[in-house]
Amino acid sequence: MVQPELLYSKEHEWVRIEGDRATIGVTDYAQEALGDIVYVELPKPGRTVEQFGDIGVVESVKAVSDLFTPISGEVVEVNAALETDPAAVNRDPYGDGWLVKLKLKDSGEAKNLLAPRDYEKLIAE
């Protein structure tokens, strides 16, 4: 399931850009591949992150995967609910399972991301 209004990275993260704010999460494809997510480690608010740089990890029972941000900016909010309910990422990756909100540095970076159709192609491969 790919959402039409979002942009995607090759590392299976999505971003929703609204003005100078961006919300980031992992895709439905990613949560499926990861299996039952048991813990999410997120950056501290205030940290600046670089496009495609790592911002944390997701853990399933038997695996750990890095999280990369699709876009640069300053972390303004993290999804604190995931601390007690990491399953939200599996349940609702594009909604309740969002990870962080950024204040954008350069919205021009969006050109380095995949449109929904291209991301669909990527995961079909």
Binding site: D36, V38, E59, V61, A87
Partner: peptide
Amino acid sequence: VGRVDETRAAR
């Protein structure tokens, strides 16, 4: 016991 719920244990 039957198969153990590891996901619950970790969550």
